[in-house]
Structures are given as structure tokens and as C-alpha cells.
């Protein structure tokens, strides 16, 4: 066996990739979070829609996004295969097992939490990513910015309207002044509409709990797997893992559907 395949088929090697892809996904969450914060901007979705275009067209981001899809798939399917393999290591189960006495429940539930997250990702991708890229439901909106006053106005385009680029920008002048006109695919509206459905909001919020608990263990665990366990830095890793990744990030993401639901 070649050393690369040997390494990545060993138990530690497989965990190594799980840790690397996991941390990569964590870093994606941070970027995704920062981008999505623009949903809260009071601009009828202009900034968010512009960002959405950038994310789907900028070449480097595109490359990274394919890496991301691969990571998600690898992390998910390797995870499932490891759960299966680990289960096989104990063919006869205990009649009584008091796991709570020696470990945190999140650490023992990574498979199920991860599966919930995977289902969520599928729903989420279908709702927004697929619709945005390949669907025909999402329409266009024109944003008029008065270049003198900065006043912003949005006007949806007709349902039949389509354009070559996802975003097109012009300057127009009329009697009321000079305007920058941006016509862009309105993902924002799609988001706002979707999140009026109570069950979808509930699903999103619940899934964010899964993310929170998955990362509560996952973030710290990745460092242990990479061999980073040092009395001087463990505190920091733990702090980031708990407060940033398992509280702030999921809370931020959960706030988005709630924001639109109650808006």
C-alpha cells in the first residue's frame, strides 16, 4: 500500500482528515456568518444580494466553494463510515452503560448531531443555493440609489424579467436626480418569504442547536486529534470552542430566520 493511502486509511489518519475538514467547515461558518449579517442591514437586501452574487461568481471563491462541498461530503460520509466501523468494534452492547459518568453527551452523539446537520444542509441548499443557481422562482429587483441624497428605493422586476448577468449596474439621470441603478437577483426576498413559514423557522432554529452541540465537542476535539493539547493553550481553545462556535455562531444563524419571521 502506498503511504498516502495507508495513512488515510489508518484510524488516526481518518480522524486527521475529519479534524481538518471540520475546522475548515468551522472557518466557513465564520465567513458565512459575516456575509449573512448583511441580512440585518436595512437596505431592502441590496448589500446581501450583491454579496450573494460575489460569492457565486468570484473565481477564487468558486474554487474554495468546491473545496467546501467536497469537505462537507467527505466529513459527512467519512463520519458515517466511522460511526459504522466504531459500532462494529463493539458487536455486543452493554445492557447498562452509564456514559454520563465519564463523558459529555455531545461527544457521544456526534454521529446523530452530524446527521441532523447534514439533513439541514440538504434542505438549506435546496431552498436557497439550488433555487438561486438553477431555479426559476427567484426574481430580480432594481435598486435605485439617489446619488445626491443616498436615498434607496427598491422595485421588483416582473416575473418574466431575466438578464445575462446576475447583477447589472447603471447610472441613470432623470428630473428627480442622478441614480445608481442595480438590478440583481433578489435572494433577500426569497429569504424573507421563506422565513415566514413557521415550520421552516422552527427547523432552522432546532438545527442550529445541533450545530451548537456538534461544535461544542467538535471544535476542541479537532485540536486533540491534530495533536494540539497543551496546558497553556487548552483554555483558549476551549473558550473559542464553547463561546464562539457553540454559542455565538449558532445563535447568530438562528437569529436570521427569527428576525424575518417576526419582522
Amino acid at each position: 500500500m502506498n503511504w498516502v493511502t495507508k495513512m488515510f486509511s489508518s484510524s488516526i489518519g481518518q480522524k486527521f482528515i475529519m479534524a481538518l475538514t471540520g475546522l475548515f467547515l468551522c472557518s466557513f461558518l465564520v465567513i458565512h456568518m459575516i456575509g449573512n449579517l448583511q441580512l440585518f442591514k436595512n437596505d431592502f437586501g441590496l448589500a446581501f444580494n450583491t454579496y450573494a452574487v460575489f460569492m457565486t461568481t468570484f473565481p477564487i471563491i468558486k474554487v474554495v466553494s468546491y473545496l467546501l462541498y467536497a469537505s462537507i461530503l467527505y466529513h459527512a460520509f467519512k463520519g458515517i463510515s466511522l460511526v459504522y466501523k466504531n459500532n462494529k468494534a463493539r458487536p455486543v452492547k452493554y445492557a447498562v452503560q452509564n456514559g454520563a459518568a465519564n463523558s459529555h453527551w455531545t461527544s457521544r452523539s456526534m454521529g446523530i448531531l452530524g446527521t441532523i446537520i447534514l439533513v439541514f444542509i440538504v434542505v438549506h441548499m435546496k431552498n436557497f443555493w439550488f433555487e438561486y443557481k438553477f431555479g426559476h422562482e427567484i426574481g430580480y429587483t432594481s435598486y435605485f440609489t439617489n446619488m445626491a441624497t443616498g436615498e434607496l428605493k427598491a422595485e421588483p422586476m416582473s416575473a418574466e424579467y431575466t438578464q445575462f448577468n446576475k447583477i447589472e449596474e447603471n447610472i441613470i439621470s432623470n428630473e428627480t436626480g442622478q441614480y445608481r441603478v442595480v438590478v440583481v437577483k433578489d435572494l433577500y426576498k426569497e429569504v424573507a418569504t421563506e422565513f415566514k413559514e413557521w415550520w421552516l423557522v422552527a427547523l432552522y432554529v432546532l438545527c442550529m442547536f445541533a450545530v451548537a452541540f456538534h461544535l461544542y465537542h467538535g471544535f476542541q476535539s479537532a485540536f486533540q486529534t491534530l495533536g494540539i493539547n497543551h496546558s497553556k493553550y487548552n483554555g483558549l481553545i476551549k473558550f473559542i470552542g464553547i463561546w464562539f462556535f457553540s454559542v455565538f455562531i449558532p445563535a447568530g444563524f438562528a437569529a436570521m430566520p427569527l428576525y424575518f419571521f417576526f419582522k
Binding site: L82, N86, G99, A101, N102, H104, R108, N229
Partner: peptide, 25 residues
């Protein structure tokens, strides 16, 4: 045929000699 580690820490918590997880790292 042992399983892979998922860093639950149960091993160290139950070890009668209290061997630390730092060794796994």
C-alpha cells in the same frame, strides 16, 4: 479491530491509573 478515537474522554475518566488524554494527543 479496535474502534477509532472520538475524543470523548471516557477512557481517561475511567482509567484506574488516571492516564491523561495528552498522551493521545
Amino acid at each position: 479491530g479496535f474502534g477509532a478515537c472520538t475524543n470523548t474522554g471516557a477512557c481517561s475518566a475511567e482509567c484506574p491509573k488516571e492516564i491523561s488524554l495528552t498522551h493521545i494527543a
